[in-house]
Design a protein around this nucleic acid. Structure first.
Lengths: 227, 227
DNA sequence: CGATTGGCGACTGTCGACAGTTTTCCGAAG
DNA sequence: CTTCGGAAAACTGTCGACAGTCGCCAATCG
């Protein structure tokens, strides 16, 4: 369910829900910075460009608003969300909160199968870091962390994580470059697996605190430079 | 209290969005169990009852869906969300995660002003527990916990908490009775303030773990009996 | 020359309608 | 009496249209 069918903006689309298709298009357009943060989106123009009526556009915009990608002002329409450094820090603080909790739950039920899945994902990330583009690297990184949350067994926790993931994607493109080279991936993800394998909650917490802290520092610094 | 004349939707106040008004009506109708969990909501019938067209109803339903009060099935419409015990446990687990984090952040910036605000809220809750009805007691309880989260300083954390609050309201009415008598409020909330005043993170965590654990046990047991 | 106001254009909020699909209901067959 | 099937009813997805509102720009006044 990732960005496999990235840009199908033409008028060919007719099979799935128009709302979902418009939402996918808008999501891709926003996180790829085709629309700049703070930009106003006109319903009629969007409807014209996509060859649909305004109703699906409005509902898709509402959906993206609930995901934090758009903000709406009454009688004025929708605007691309512009994150500032404070909001970004809050998001990373919440992410830390969620991942800490997920790890604490996961160590209690950790087994060989889960370890193998996480291990192969990290290996995939290292492989991807050598060949593919930045957005692909970031997606695989998010997949890894989503696996961790998912393995914790709490579906509601996973939903909360997915919510902030959308907002994270919103600002990642702003930074432009990623530090997702094989070295940094190895040094920042293997300790997480080691901590899980050790079964020590404190070690897990220490590992995730460091991991999130590095990412937060990098992203917030990048946003500061981009603004 | 039928749908058509439930609120003063008449000609007096027309300046607000119809979407928000419909959303408020639906929220009240759902958490007051006017609509039963799992019930299908017809857009046309809702539009007829409320005297509006389907467009505002659809957008309001989308909004409630993002808040977890409704679920939608393609081509089938919207249904009132029915929570089972597993989902409820997940919600409380996430709530524990959020409140732990909020307390950990709050102890670092705790001051006399915040303490006074929380203290007066607990006193209000004890007062309310003597005179008012159950829903009022629950609302004041939620206000207290929302204050704690808000005082943590993380706006995004507050939003995540508000999200699960909507879902909590969804099942509270199912239980019918609350254990929010003055005694249980005192014994379960004062220790939280004491822990905050002590400035000890471990004591805070212990207090919130016990507090949420009691509430979770009570609510999940209530749901088990209600189903 | 700057501030204010009026008009014009564009846009959102809302509505009713149509087409395709799902559900329901009723009769017939086993 | 139960089950199957088809037609009708109801519903959702989508569309185009209209009215009220907001923002912009120009014309006017101090």
């Amino acid at each position: 369910m990732t960005a496999s069918n990235a840009f199908d903006k033409g008028g060919i689309i007719q099979q799935r829900n128009l709302v979902d298709q418009v939402a996918d298009y808008l999501t891709q357009a926003i996180i790829s910075q085709y629309y700049t943060p703070g930009e106003r989106l006109s319903e009629v123009q969007l409807a014209r460009d996509l060859g649909v009526s305004r109703a699906p556009v409005r509902e898709a915009a509402r959906l993206l608003e609930s995901r934090g990608l758009l903000v709406s002002q009454p009688r004025r329409g929708f605007f691309v969300r512009a994150l500032d450094a404070a909001e970004l820090n809050d998001i990373f603080d919440l992410r830390l909160c969620l991942e800490r909790h997920a790890l604490a739950r996961l160590v209690e039920t950790y087994d060989a199968e889960k370890e193998a899945a996480l291990r192969s994902q990290v290996e995939l990330m290292c492989e991807v870091a050598l060949h593919d583009n930045d957005s692909r690297k970031i997606e695989e990184d998010l997949v890894f962390h989503r696996m961790v949350i998912s393995f914790s067994g709490n579906q509601r926790l996973l939903k909360a994580y997915d919510d902030i993931t959308h907002e994270l994607r919103l600002c990642i493109a702003l930074i432009g470059k990623t530090h997702a080279d094989p070295d940094s991936i190895s040094t920042s993800h293997w300790p997480l697996l080691d901590a899980l394998a050790s079964g020590d909650p404190d070690q897990c917490r220490e590992a995730i605190d460091y991991h999130i802290g590095v990412a937060q520092h990098y992203v917030v610094k990048g946003i500061g430079e981009a603004l």
